[in-house]
């Protein structure tokens, strides 16, 4: 059981780290959003899964409550993260940031 926990938490830390590095390494807003949104959502998913497993494995009323609340936090995170990233991408485009080195830009024709 503890090995499962180590694996889940390890994957979480790994992907959150990748997201943070992607944030520094990629060239423009859109590619940074790619890295940041995907990796931090996935990393947080696995971290939260680790805590959920921990809560249910410990048992008892307090730890079950902990696990249920983590599930709610996880759903909130999964719904809000991609939606927020749309909002940022759209706002960045409308405020005049063009994708750097783009081979095609279909949005330009429309607006």
């Amino acid at each position: 059981m503890s090995i499962l926990l180590y694996v889940l938490l390890g994957i979480g830390v790994l992907f959150n780290g990748l997201g943070a590095i992607a944030l520094v390494r990629f060239p423009d807003v859109y590619t940074r959003l790619h890295g940041a949104t995907k990796c931090t959502t996935f990393g947080s998913l696995f971290t939260a899964l680790g805590v959920i497993v921990y809560g249910f494995a410990r048992g008892g009323a307090q730890y079950n409550t902990l696990a249920i609340h983590v599930i709610i936090a996880l759903i909130a995170l999964l719904v809000t993260n991609p939606t927020g990233s749309h909002a940022i991408a759209r706002a960045a485009y409308r405020s005049g940031v063009k994708p750097k080195g783009a081979v095609v830009d279909k949005l330009e024709d429309r607006s």
């Binding site: 990748l18 390494r25 080195g101």
Partner: peptide, 24 residues
């Protein structure tokens, strides 16, 4: 698909190979 996506991003973070664009 999400797991694949993250490995894909990991690959691109490390190698820096990108060819971006906006499609409809």
């Amino acid at each position: 698909a999400m797991a694949k996506a993250n490995l894909d991003v990991a690959y691109r973070v490390i190698t820096g190979k990108i060819r971006p664009g906006i499609v409809r």
